[in-house]
Every structure is written in structure tokens, then in C-alpha cells.
């Protein structure tokens, strides 16, 4: 693990973008997430680590109310986005999801052309005034996602024809194009090879300048490489949350230490 890099990295701002207090999630009778308090900071990459089934993806899906689409899920507690409760009745989950974008574990491009995949968000939210505007948004998003050079000559080709790594970067471009404030990534590299993973990780680091990024990962190396803050979940509990360097070099909780040294999970 590259300890030097972790220690050198500093957290630029301390403003909380999202705040979670006492969050509980139930799937039917199953208590999946117990009493989680977390602050997602502005312009920061926050990593969620922990063994499978520990609740990290569940919590991620609470942050943009994707759990609403699961009929049996129940969310208690408070999650604020810039001071506003996102589970308040007045909040439209659709608008919320435009502000808190999401990239999924498996690349899931729509059965449309590359251009239309990226233009999907801006079109449905009416973010652009003209075709030229839209072209520019698509180009910028693809450039940010480091995909522009590979696809600029075949924007009308189907998005499903790209390779796995390209598809995932297309999905990231699609999420960026909607210009969200927070970007949630649920194991975005689990289906990718090491080269594509490196590209996506580099991209995440660049995205930090504009968004808050939350990434769920099974790879502790990845968490150490890309994040500034790390949260460790275990059996539905948030065990430890702090600066990435501290979590990996000097964990306070014995469970965190066991996990990162490979003794549990």
C-alpha cells in the first residue's frame, strides 16, 4: 500500500455536503443498517469499505433515495443535503437524484447511441437550450470521463458496443452530464480489468474538484488510493469513520484493524 501518497494528501475543505444522523434501514424484518452517522464533505472522495452484506451499498442507496424503488425497504433517521432533509415529503426524489447522481456496479449503458446515452440526463432535465449546447455538454462530459478521444468518431454507435471499461466510463460521463452535486459510485470497478480500473480511479480523483464523490469498494487498496475519508461498516454498523490515512495506518477500533489486515471479512 502506498502510504506516502495517503499521508501527503490533504482534505481541502471541511464543509459538510451531506449529513446523516441516526439512519436505520429495514428490509422487511431484516435490520440492515443500524444507527449510522456520517458527514460527506464537499470536494472530497469518501470511501465505504467492509465485508459483503455489511450495509455499505444500502447506505449509499439511501443517499439518493434509490431504496424507494425497493418495495420492502424502510428508512428511518435523518439525511440532510445542504441542510435540507431529503426524506421530507416536499422533496421530489426525482429532483434529488438529479442532484445526487449514481454510477452502478455493472456498467449499464442504455440501448441507445453513445451520444444519446450522455445526452439522456440533460434532455430529461432540460439543461440545455439548443442542440449546440447539448453537443457541448456531451463533449465536456465525455472528456471529463476520459472517453472522448476513444469515441469522438463514433458518437452514433450503440453504447453497448463499447468494451467493459469504456462502458463504465460512459456511465460515469452520463452521470456527470446531469451536473450533480454528489456522485455516488457503487463498486464502479468491480467488473473492470486493472487498466480500466486505473483510468476510472484517475478520473475519480479529477472529479473531486467539482463534486463530492462517495465510492463503495471491496478493494482496500482502491479505497486507500482514491479517497480522503474512509468509513468501515461491519454487520450493519458504522464501526469507524475518519481520514483515510488514519484508518489504514492507525485504526482505533480492533475490528477495523482486523479487517484491513485481512483477519475478518
Amino acid at each position: 500500500m502506498n502510504d506516502m501518497r495517503i499521508l501527503e494528501r490533504d482534505v481541502e475543505t471541511q464543509t459538510a455536503k451531506m449529513t446523516a444522523r441516526g439512519v436505520q434501514v429495514y428490509y422487511g424484518d431484516n435490520h440492515a443498517l443500524k444507527d449510522v452517522d456520517i458527514d460527506i464533505l464537499q470536494n472530497t472522495v469518501t470511501a465505504f469499505i467492509g465485508p459483503s452484506g455489511c450495509g455499505k451499498s444500502t447506505f449509499l442507496r439511501c443517499l439518493n433515495r434509490m431504496n424507494d424503488t425497493v418495495a420492502s425497504a424502510r428508512v428511518l433517521g435523518q439525511i440532510l443535503l445542504e441542510g435540507e432533509d431529503i426524506y421530507d415529503k416536499r422533496v421530489d426524489p426525482v429532483t434529488l437524484r438529479a442532484r445526487v447522481g449514481m454510477v452502478f456496479q455493472k456498467p449499464n449503458p442504455f440501448p441507445k447511441s453513445i451520444y444519446d446515452n450522455v445526452a439522456y440526463g440533460p434532455k430529461i432535465h432540460g439543461l440545455t437550450r439548443s442542440k449546440a449546447d447539448l453537443d457541448e455538454v456531451v463533449e465536456t462530459a465525455l472528456k471529463k470521463a476520459a472517453l472522448w478521444n476513444e469515441v469522438k468518431d463514433r458518437l452514433s454507435a450503440p453504447g453497448t458496443g463499447l468494451s467493459g471499461g469504456q462502458q463504465q466510463r460512459l456511465c460515469i460521463a452520463r452521470a456527470i452530464a446531469t451536473s450533480p452535486e454528489v456522485l455516488l459510485m457503487d463498486e464502479p470497478c468491480s467488473a473492470l480489468d486493472p487498466i480500466a480500473t486505473a483510468q476510472v480511479e484517475e478520473l475519480i480523483d479529477e472529479l473531486r474538484s467539482q463534486f463530492s464523490v462517495v465510492i463503495v469498494t471491496h478493494s482496500m487498496q482502491q479505497a486507500a488510493r482514491v479517497s480522503q475519508r474512509t468509513a468501515f461498516f461491519h454487520l450493519g454498523n458504522l464501526v469507524e469513520f475518519g481520514e483515510t490515512g488514519q484508518i489504514f495506518t492507525n485504526p482505533r477500533d480492533p475490528r477495523t484493524e482486523s479487517y484491513i489486515t485481512g483477519r475478518i471479512g
Binding site: 439518493n64 434509490m66 424503488t69 426525482v94 429532483t95 434529488l96 437524484r97 438529479a98 442532484r99 447522481g101 449514481m102 454510477v103 452502478f104 455493472k106 449499464n108 449503458p109 442504455f110 440501448p111 441507445k112 439522456y120 440526463g121 430529461i124 432535465h125 456511465c171 452520463r174 452521470a175 446531469t178
Partner: peptide, 23 residues
Amino acid sequence: AMRDGSYGLGATQSETVKQVVLP
């Protein structure tokens, strides 16, 4: 996954049906 992708971008249910599911 296709529907999740669309909802994750802030599309409504009918937008998702019309633009993603039906195609």
C-alpha cells in the same frame, strides 16, 4: 439495472419507460 441507471439520473418512471425500457 437499466431502470436503476435511469432512476439514478433523476428520470421519472414514465421517462424511464418511454426512453429506456420500451426501446
